[in-house]
Nucleic acid binder design. Structure first.
Lengths: 192, 192
DNA sequence: CCGCTGAGTTGCAAAAATAAACCCACTCTC
DNA sequence: GAGAGTGGGTTTATTTTTGCAACTCAGCGG
């Protein structure tokens, strides 16, 4: 539980942000930030990868990762506290647990897939160590952004972002913002 | 350049790894691991989010994040070294740079989107601070796994994984493995 | 009873993160 | 052209986090 509540000083420098109109006082933390507070350390995602892969026991994970036992213990406790994993006893006397994904934990799979995909694309010189394939055709899969309403795949240039309901500084005048498709900016200039 | 080359001690304990048949000498590191070596620290993804969002200057990023200047300097250098960002001078004497995404850096957007989505789904109680919407219909987008060959969306249960060409311990007998769809395991039991 | 295993804790040295101060090459203002 | 300001960093302490080793504790096998 050593989450650091670093709260940036609200840009008192009033940076002449070329595109921004006005106040930048919104203090909600962006979702990437809160996510990183939970799984944004060196080991958590690696631990989760092991659980995804079916290694549910302390010693299995520890052997695979080579992580120090106290760290693994801390990471597991933290993940349990954050409701990403749950401890389910598989024997009592001595109580021993499996660590299993909660729904919330399982919902991290897109992130794991995205991270794995990036490593594959840019670092796997002899090809990916592991590939995800389609059950029916056996062909490699990829991740895409899609629009459930239109039921179609959306290319990066067709993505826009806008302040959501949780944004405390929604300014009507800049409600919808074009994403620069060259640079693929995925966030608008509202200070979330 | 403080990547720690933690190379797990090859499990000298000769852990009786229940599920694995035989040698566990494969030494390629899984793609999630190599990815985390590049962007798997507390700040890198947050820095990248800022660059995605159009903040290209040292001081802009520093003001937004409230990160210590030496750390930001380190992170930026590291990201430049890893070819995720590039420094493009926008003036000389004193040389000043913008930090811009390389293709490799821009290719991290699915990961950022996935992480943001997870934070939105599980922590944004009053709704997401930022939502990604479809340009044409304005409806919120989601990420999905799809099969380019079949041109269809693949649900988690239809995903299988198998050792890829970069896996140095491909054992033909266990070439294709079913993913437990309840727990959404995304990796097979080969020691990558 | 003796040693072994699985799943941790505790203690301590080493490494990394942070904050604050300092630096340097300019530019702007008077 | 002296003084202040700015962008983009280094340097130097201080605090936190790691990582390793040793220790614990409950049961098990012989």
């Amino acid at each position: 539980m050593t989450i650091d509540h670093r709260e940036r000083p609200a840009t008192d420098l009033s940076a002449p942000n070329t595109s921004t109109s006005g106040d930048t006082t919104a203090m909600d933390r962006c979702s990437i930030e809160v996510t990183l507070d939970v799984i944004g350390d060196r080991w958590s995602l690696l631990v989760l990868r092991n659980v995804f892969r079916g290694r549910h026991r302390f010693s299995e994970i520890q052997a695979d990762l080579g992580i120090a036992k106290n760290l693994l213990s801390d990471r597991l406790s933290k993940l349990v506290t954050h409701d990403v994993l749950e401890r389910v006893p598989y024997q009592d006397r001595p109580v021993r647990h499996d660590y299993r994904l909660t729904a919330k934990g399982a919902d991290l799979s897109p992130a794991l897939i995205a991270l794995m995909g990036w490593g594959d694309r840019w670092y796997a010189t002899q090809g990916a160590p592991t590939v995800l394939v389609h059950q029916s055709c056996g062909e490699p899969l990829e991740q895409a952004v899609r629009c459930p309403a239109c039921d179609e795949i959306v290319s990066p240039g067709k993505i826009r972002s806008r302040p959501g309901p949780g944004n405390s500084s929604i300014r009507p005048s800049s409600d919808r913002q074009e994403i620069d498709s060259d640079r693929q900016e995925i966030d608008e200039d509202v200070d979330d």
